[in-house]
């Protein structure tokens, strides 16, 4: 299985190399795999490039945290109060499918082309799935458990923190898994659309306009994919840990 996977990767690299070396595609459109990888190796120690990658990651992280800070308490509130949920449910259903990149031009006017704008786009895209999964998680809380906790004489606040929140965590984690990979996509998208001067997206666009920049573009794409792989891996590791904990909680 692993050996076949490795063979697959090597095979693809070989085909790529051959296609490029024998000019089956124009050389300026597709550099050989070997020189792309060599360029990527240079890039991962290149401070300018790393600075741009850092800008993208930082903006994604800030935006993501923003989404969490809004979605989790609000989700708890809407999940616990049926009245508030009723009043807001249609609004949420109407706002949820709106593509956040559409707001980029407006956000550029209000927040500029840098960190604030990108973070806002990431937050707008990630907040809905997080919010909805939190509400679902709260709704799924066992009502007997809630009633029992109330009978202990705990306040609503205490019940929310000690009973409702822990049992909502698995559903919240589902929301996290769905949104984490979206954050990077939205951030790079916002960099293109908003005309940012820093960030992976901007760097790639600049390189693509330089003569011979295609090698850097391909190398950048390879690095971006690896970055995505790392993030996905981290999220599933996190989920395995927390899911085990959630199962123990249920038992």
């Amino acid at each position: 299985m692993l050996r076949r996977g490795a063979t697959g990767v090597l095979g693809t690299l070989l085909v790529w190399e051959v296609v490029a070396r024998f000019d089956l595609l124009p050389r300026d459109a597709l550099p050989p795999a070997s020189s792309t990888i060599a360029r990527a190796a240079e890039l991962v120690v290149d401070t300018t490039f790393l600075g741009n990658v850092g800008a993208t990651l930082w903006a994604s992280l800030v935006g993501y945290l923003l989404a969490l800070v809004v979605a989790l308490p609000l989700g708890m509130l809407l999940g616990l109060s049926d009245r508030l949920y009723l009043v807001s449910s249609t609004v949420i259903e109407l706002l949820r499918p709106l593509p956040p990149v559409g707001l980029v031009p407006l956000l550029v006017l209000v927040a500029g082309q840098g960190l604030e704008m990108k973070a806002a786009v990431v937050a707008l895209g990630c907040v809905w799935p997080l919010l909805i999964n939190t509400i679902h998680g709260v709704h799924a809380t066992d009502s007997t458990a809630r009633a029992t906790a109330r009978s202990f004489g705990w306040s609503r606040r205490q019940v929310a923190i000690r009973v409702v929140w822990p049992s909502a965590i698995p559903s919240v984690l589902t929301g996290v898994r769905i949104t984490v990979s979206v954050a990077l996509i939205l951030c790079v998208g916002a960099e293109f659309i908003g005309g940012s001067t820093a960030g992976l997206g901007s760097w790639l666009l600049q390189q693509s306009m330089l003569p011979g920049g295609i090698e850097s573009v391909c190398a950048g794409v390879v690095i971006a994919g690896s970055l995505g792989l790392l993030i996905n891996g981290a999220v599933s590791a996190l989920e395995t840990r927390f899911a085990a904990w959630a199962r123990r909680e249920e038992a």
Partner: peptide, 29 residues
């Protein structure tokens, strides 16, 4: 199954790739 085993790492990579980074590449290609 066999074909999938060869291609699985590539699939994971392409899925993890943030789509918009392909724009500059598409422009050139």
């Amino acid at each position: 199954r066999t074909v999938a085993e060869y291609l699985e790492p590539l699939l994971h990579f392409m899925r993890a790739l943030p789509g918009p980074v392909l724009l500059p590449l598409a422009l050139v290609l």
